[in-house]
Structure formats: C-alpha cells, structure tokens
C-alpha cells in the first residue's frame, strides 16, 4: 500500500498541489496592524497595541532569508522526534533563518546533506519541501532550509 504524504503539522506550509518552486511557509497577517505570525496565529492578533478590528489572513512567508545561526544534533533527540533506535544516529543540521520582509527568525532543519561546514552566518538560504520521517502509513512532510546555489545568487545580483 502506498504511503500517504501528510504534513507533520497542518497549515504551516503549502501542500503538494503547488510545484516545488512555489513551496512556501504559511503564516498569518493581521489586517489591522500588519503583524505577521509564524507559527500561524488564527485566534487573535498578539500585538498588544494593535488597534483591533482586523482579521487574521493566511500569508506566505518570504521564500528566502539569511542564516542567523546554525548548529547540528550529534545525539539522538528524545521523543516525540522520530528516529529508528536500531539505526546509527545521523546528525541533522538546524538553521535559524532571518526573513527580512517579516522581520523574524524561523528555525528549520537543513535539507539532507547540508552540514554545518556548508553554512555561515549571513548566507542566503531558501525554503524547500522536505520529508521529516516515514512510517508504515505516512510520509511526514516538512520544510527544509537549503543554501541558495551560487549561480542562482549571481543571477539575482
């Protein structure tokens, strides 16, 4: 039986109906004060001086940002992180990314194969769809940060 792809958390990023290049993290934005929330806030604006009366609407976050900091996990994290206890632990890389337009820092795992030695603070990265883990029934999808390839940076420059 084919496994079903499911987001590890609902509503935080675009689904598989959009092409990979259009993958985005999804936050919400207050129409009254322009505050952006990620993880999404759907109940009420949390800006204490928001004039009020606005609505929270879904908004895609900037697909690119700059590395604020990074690290890795050399030891197996405890549950609810899912890993095979019988398999040797493979460290993953964690990246904190500064999004200029939103004025916020968003954490994420780096795309597979990206090591801390591949990263530096200030470097440009982009959000890409990724897989967190798979079990008997599901492929649990997530977001990853991946360094923007040098030639593509140049294209933009």
């Amino acid at each position: 039986m084919a496994r079903t792809r499911r987001p590890v958390v609902t509503g935080w990023f675009t689904d598989d109906t959009v092409p990979e290049g259009a993958f985005r993290l999804l936050g919400t934005r207050c129409s009254a004060c322009a505050a952006v929330f990620f993880p999404r806030e759907d109940d009420a604006c949390r800006n204490p001086v928001c004039p009020g009366g606005g609505a929270l609407g879904e908004v895609p976050l900037s697909p690119r940002g700059r590395v604020w900091s990074y690290t890795d996990g050399r030891y197996r994290p405890p549950a609810p992180y899912v890993s095979d206890p019988d398999a040797p632990w493979e460290p993953y890389t964690l990246v904190a990314v500064e999004l200029a337009a939103e004025g916020m820092v968003v954490l994420g795992q780096a795309a597979p194969g990206v090591r801390t030695s591949d990263l530096r603070v200030g470097q440009e990265v982009e959000v890409v769809p990724g897989v967190l883990n798979e079990d008997a029934e599901h492929v649990w999808t997530t977001w990853h940060w991946r360094p923007v390839a040098p030639e593509r940076t140049e294209e933009r420059a």
Binding site: C33, A35, F37, F38, P39, R46, A101, E102
Partner: peptide
C-alpha cells in the same frame, strides 16, 4: 519557540 515575533507591526 520555532520563530521569533515579527517586527512588521512594531
């Protein structure tokens, strides 16, 4: 936290 607050409003 997985992210900081946004500074778009304040």
């Amino acid at each position: 936290d997985i992210a900081t607050d946004s500074t778009t409003a304040l």
